[in-house]
């Protein structure tokens, strides 16, 4: 047995950097863009349906926005595989809630559940940037934006995905009226205005972002339920 430091010995060899290097990377970015615009008594969610792998288009129709209940929609971005699994988990939990309590799960409850689910994978995160949008118990429209670890914030407008850098400033201007001295900060968008802004955001993004295009799924959620509409984007 040895005690203390033997001066004639060389210090222990520094561990070699083995982690992170030469390691298989399980994350892939399959592209696509999602946005949400919250109004007074409604919320709009829009996602394109292109799925890409590098310069290849895998498919022109792969949904990444889903109805979780008749008052909540979930839109995912970035990694399609993780997004689909996350949706399945939330869908199952929403079903369990419904059968247990005989009423649909509320948007606020789902929002916290999503945050917890993301954080439960803190050490191997889902590579997704979710937007959860719906109407709250008081009938007001709300959109929650998340990062991959579960940080959550309710917002009036948000864009995530491959064209987020193109869409977010557009929404800041047209929905948030940012840096516009003569704009009324309390002005609320109507449904038609929100719809036109969402469509314009995606037609513009399709021109400049190769990962966004093909089809656009738009969900409008209000007190009467979820209304889905599919529009065509450019297929190039």
């Amino acid at each position: 047995m040895e005690f203390g430091l033997q001066l004639n010995e060389r210090p222990m060899e520094a561990p070699r950097e083995a982690h992170g290097h030469n390691h298989w990377n399980p994350y892939v970015d399959t592209g696509g863009t999602s946005l949400a615009i919250a109004g007074e008594d409604f919320v709009l969610v829009a996602s394109d349906t292109r799925q890409s792998d590098g310069y290849n288009i895998n498919t022109r129709y792969d949904s990444k926005a889903f109805e979780l209940s008749n008052k909540t929609v979930l839109a995912l971005s970035i990694c399609s595989a993780d997004g689909k699994r996350l949706y399945e988990i939330l869908e199952q939990r929403a079903q369990l809630y419904f059968h247990k309590h005989d009423k649909p799960i509320g948007t606020e409850a789902l929002a916290q559940l999503l945050s917890n689910t993301l954080y439960s994978r803190r050490m191997f995160p889902y590579y997704v940037f979710p937007i959860l949008a719906g109407v709250k118990a008081d009938g007001k429209g709300v959109a929650y934006s998340y990062d991959a670890l579960g940080n959550m914030k309710d917002v009036t407008h948000i864009a995530y995905g491959s064209a987020a850098a193109l869409v977010q400033p557009f929404l800041d201007s047209q929905v948030g009226f940012a840096n516009q001295r003569n704009a009324d900060p309390n002005r609320q968008l109507t449904r038609d205005q929100a719809m036109r802004i969402a469509i314009d955001a995606f037609t513009g993004s399709t021109e400049r972002d190769i990962y966004t295009g093909d089809w656009l799924e738009i969900f409008v959620v209000d007190a009467t339920g979820v209304h889905k509409e599919v529009r065509e984007l450019k297929h190039d």
């Binding site: 792998d53 895998n58 498919t59 399609s80 595989a81 699994r85």
Partner: peptide, 25 residues
């Protein structure tokens, strides 16, 4: 439908794997 080692999945009317994704698609 298609599935690969990253768990990426999709459905489409035409699918090709590997070089086929570049040359056959």
């Amino acid at each position: 439908g298609y599935a690969n080692l990253f768990g990426t999945t999709y459905q489409s009317d035409c699918i090709a794997t590997g070089f086929g994704a570049h040359l056959a698609i």
